[in-house]
């Protein structure tokens, strides 16, 4: 559940469900600069597939890591420009 990545911002989307985690992630990424990494903390189990799908289908972002813990799902998304 830990990462060696250098995190710029953390987005807390615990307690909310689809489609909010993806939408808030997108909004938070828009605020970051190129090369910066967003940590997304979610409790929605669907976020594992949804954030991955969103990152694959969206230009300018790269999903660096995903960690699944006890009811907590962490996603690390880099803004690539």
């Amino acid at each position: 559940m830990t990462t060696d990545l250098d995190i710029t911002e953390t987005l807390d989307v615990t307690g909310v469900s689809c489609p909010i985690p993806v939408v808030k992630t997108k909004q938070a990424i828009d605020e970051l600069g190129d090369g910066e990494i967003l940590e997304v903390v979610a409790t929605d189990s669907g976020s594992m597939s949804d954030i991955r799908g969103w990152a694959e289908g969206t230009d300018g972002v790269e999903l660096r890591e995903q960690h699944e813990g006890d009811d907590v799902y962490k996603h690390y998304v880099e803004k690539t420009g």
Binding site: P19, V23, K26, W54
Partner: peptide
């Protein structure tokens, strides 16, 4: 709609 918007 919101999800598609998140995909730009």
């Amino acid at each position: 709609a919101t999800t598609a918007a998140a995909f730009d």
